[in-house]
Write a protein that binds this DNA or RNA. Structure first.
Lengths: 338, 338
DNA sequence: CTGAAAGCGCTTACAG
DNA sequence: CTGAAAGCGCTTACAG
């Protein structure tokens, strides 16, 4: 099948390419009759403009890039869902890249997206990202940039986040309210901002309620996953026999811990209460069901794209744009593990 | 920051655009000296070719499209993971679209990808897709097409699948081998090929082993999810009191069923054995851990892209290409629910 | 209301 | 070894 071009239509109709182009785009200076004729012919031939040529002329690709640490993760796949749905509504396509929590890969992927001339970039930072010169370059090239969930405070751009510190504070306070006196924390890696903030929220809640902070009660779950939760729980049982509550950085880690306790005959929440984070749908299905903090992934994706869209629009019109940080609400969810 | 173009470099060096272009692409008919000069200048100016122009000339976008029914699904996100990793290795970017199991959306998205001139399309069909004219169009336009997991037999293109019928047969046989005499099946929707095949495997296994097939033991889980499993299990308990085994279309449905039985004090596997499908990582974490069939999502994604890549390569060279169907191995995983 | 012409930035067949 | 020229398919300022 041969490609149908404007030239093709013009020849068939015996008019100029210019007029065909204008007619299809409803320019006011083309007669109704010609427009009708052109549109009919275009439809008949199934004409589709060649985006490559359009891109070259308009300097827009109608495509945005998305870099995410891990696709296979309920929270992140929810974000993806929100983003691509919203993007499609606005006529944008989304290229998805996975950094695998690697700084090196992330940097390479930023370069890739720049060279592909995406109209905007959305990113959730890898755990191992410290240096942010690659993101500064995006800013320099004036490509609209938005960070979500795992952000850096060092870069001035729009952001969509939750208030991790407050949410963690509320989660820890809930444990205290239900009578816990000695509360451990399974935290994430040392670098990511959200891991830090959740830790700080936990610490602050203890201090505000007359419980002493004890660093030996803090365990690191590097990958914040199920196995990390298992290992941390086992270690905790070896180290301490007086802990009556745990606040974990993710539901996955909490579920790992619960499986250890179930196995050892330690009763949750009678012997030890557990509080997760993120409200993964499985959390309501396990025994006991997990108390947690609801983290709105789909919503975050949706809001993120909307914000990026505004910025892309402003940029196209050469208008100034004021980066905004949008903080989404979280919700404490009480179930049977506390 | 101004864009750096070939023209820019040519002017700086006082040579022609042609020569600059050739030098950068290491054409043999450019002197070593000139090449070195050009490359140095290009590096200095951080020259990046304008992909829009390159696309227009080469008629390639180095981008592939992926349409998937649901992103938020462990199996599919594993497939995505395999695809984007492999694609990146080969210098391709992946545009991901979600059909939400809707035929209408799927059709629109195919159009979108065609108009974006992706170099190839990979798709797992929506449940509601019966008509396949949109896929026929892809073939007509000679865009390399690959289907995986949820495929249609009506279209001649490369495919990556598992042998659903055999896998379901093995799963059901495993229930029979462990002593089950009256085995129910929670099947998927009526249309998708894999739902049909798993059902047929179940039925065949019963018949081959002297158990009578009873259609009243077959329940439909339209969305094959956790809630469907809960509802089917509740209905089953109302309808029958002699069922001693269930084979479910997905682990999610199985876990829903287990949660119902746990709640009602029905012992798994003593009173009733349960067999899932897909080996979701959570399946080993629940109580009792779930016996299931391992379905290699990541592998499927990887193999799928590799196969598509071969086809794209052949097409570029105008070589003939013979579509291939690749069947991936599944594995029976015995745990504590059977 | 219509169209010739320039140009987006690149690639490549061809001439010298 | 180098470069002028044509062309990919479109858009748009300009002339008539």
């Amino acid at each position: 099948m041969k490609e149908v071009t404007l030239k093709q239509i013009a020849e068939n109709l015996g008019i100029s390419i210019t007029t065909v182009s204008k007619a299809l785009k409803d320019y006011p200076d083309v007669s109704k009759k010609t427009k009708a004729l052109v549109k009919k012919e275009a439809k008949k031939l199934h004409y589709k403009p060649n985006v490559f040529a359009v891109n070259l002329r308009t300097k827009e690709s109608k495509t945005v890039g998305l870099i995410i640490p891990e696709v296979v993760h309920h929270f992140f796949s929810s974000v993806i869902n929100g983003i691509i749905e919203q993007a499609e509504k606005k006529g944008y396509l989304v290229i998805i890249l996975q950094s695998n929590e690697s700084y090196k890969l992330e940097k390479k992927q930023i370069d890739l997206l720049i060279s592909k001339r995406v109209d905007g970039i959305m990113i959730s930072l890898a755990n191992k990202t410290v240096d942010i010169s690659h993101l500064k370059r995006v800013k320099e090239l004036e490509i609209p940039l938005l960070m979500f969930d795992k952000i850096s405070k060092m870069i001035d751009c729009s952001k969509v986040v939750i208030n991790d510190r407050e949410a963690a504070y509320a989660a820890t306070k809930h444990l205290i309210d239900t009578g816990c006196k000695r509360i451990a924390h399974f935290r994430g890696a040392l670098l990511p901002q959200n891991s830090i903030d959740r830790f700080l929220g936990y610490k602050k809640a203890l201090e505000d309620h007359g419980l002493k902070y004890d660093s030996s009660l803090v365990y690191i779950c590097e990958n914040v996953d199920y196995n990390d939760g298992i290992n941390a729980a086992k270690q905790l049982l070896e180290d301490h026999d007086d802990v009556d509550g745990i606040f974990t950085i993710t539901d996955l880690a909490a579920i790992g811990a619960i499986s250890v306790f179930n196995e050892k005959g330690i009763r949750v929440p009678d012997d030890i209460s557990i509080m997760g984070f993120s409200n993964w749908f499985v959390s309501s299905a396990i025994t006991p069901s997990l108390s947690t903090v609801d983290q709105p992934g789909y919503e975050m994706g949706k809001v993120a794209f909307k914000q990026l869209y505004k910025e892309m629009k402003a940029r196209r019109k050469h208008e100034d744009f004021e980066p905004r940080t949008i903080v989404l609400e979280t919700k404490l969810i009480k179930r049977n593990s506390t």
